[in-house]
């Protein structure tokens, strides 16, 4: 039964990443291949900030202390700044020319550059927020969970509920959804498009950063972590239905669970193929995904 919990936790980080991809796709209309690298950059940013703040005693049963929580917030800001800068320098200019697929290609080039830049700065050797070993607590049915895992699940839940409320209950969220549905009409009724674009990047990049830090706390940090999560993230965004925040999270969990099941029953080496199989299945059977709407 342990694999269900492992899948849930892996799925949480995939889901957080997928929210960013699904929002970028529905608002800015391109699939951002650099999104995985936002995660890696977020994790490394947090790592650097933690190092800057300096050592501290871990909080209660967790492997991390206040510095990491602070660093997470700073890193979310830094990652958002990076995404905005990238949009200003590259994506916005290409978007203005109107060829959507060129923007996808630019994101592919940017992704390669960002990832290799991380390898250049930090080398490809994996690193960790903390090397301490955590005791896992049994919670019944033979399932064990560590305090860190509980903390990360709670963090995911807070972020997802927060983003969902923002998208459905605030003016900004309504503007984003309106722009996603009909850009021309949104402009006509006076929605500030630049602000919508900015909000999309900030939300996407912040969640990517949180997801990267999560993976960093629970597994490890390495420059390629974003690349290896990219396919599951895309698969989750499409399975959930482009534009749907709850769909992305649910699909992320589905993919996490399927991957864990594949590791359990088929073999760990085939894990990375699961997302592809799900992706192909969705595209062949129901391309709009679970909660998607048919676009024209």
């Amino acid at each position: 039964m342990q694999f269900l919990l492992d899948g849930l936790i892996a799925g949480a980080s995939v889901g957080l990443g997928a929210i960013g991809v699904t929002l970028t796709y529905s608002v800015l209309r391109f699939s951002n291949f650099a999104h995985g690298d936002f995660m890696a950059w977020g994790a490394y940013a947090a790592l650097v900030v933690v190092g800057f703040i300096g050592g501290s005693t871990p909080l209660g049963p967790f492997s991390f202390g206040l510095p990491l929580i602070l660093a997470l917030m700073v890193a979310m800001g830094l990652t958002s700044g990076m995404a905005l800068a990238l949009d200003w320098a590259l994506f916005a200019r290409l978007r203005a020319r109107g060829q959507a697929i060129i923007v996808v290609m630019a994101s592919f080039g940017a992704s390669m550059a960002l990832r290799s830049l991380l390898e250049f700065i930090f080398t490809s050797r994996p690193t960790y927020f903390s090397r301490s070993i955590q005791m896992a607590m049994p919670v019944g049915f033979g399932v064990k969970i560590t305090a860190d895992q509980v903390a990360m699940l709670v963090l995911t839940l807070c972020l997802v509920v927060g983003v969902h409320l923002m998208m459905t209950r605030t003016q900004r969220g309504r503007e984003m959804r309106a722009y996603a549905q009909n850009p021309a009409l949104a402009r006509v009724v006076g929605i500030d498009v630049d602000r919508v674009v900015r909000s999309t990047w900030v939300i996407g990049a912040s969640l990517a950063c949180a997801s990267g830090v999560m993976v960093g706390v629970l597994v490890q940090i390495r420059p390629l972590m974003g690349l290896s999560l990219l396919l599951p993230i895309f698969a989750a965004a499409i399975l959930g239905g482009i534009g749907s925040v709850p769909g992305a999270v649910l699909a992320g969990v589905i993919i996490g669970l399927s991957e864990a099941a594949a590791v359990q029953f088929i073999g760990a080496e085939w894990r990375a193929a699961v997302a592809f199989v799900i992706l192909m299945g969705v595209l062949l059977i129901r391309p709009t995904g679970l909660f998607g709407v048919t676009e024209r």
Binding site: A110, M112, A113, S116, L117
Partner: peptide
């Protein structure tokens, strides 16, 4: 890795 960064930046600049 810096070599790859350079090619990535080049690709983006050409697109621009």
């Amino acid at each position: 890795s810096l070599q790859i960064v350079a090619i990535g930046v080049m690709l983006c600049l050409i697109l621009l």
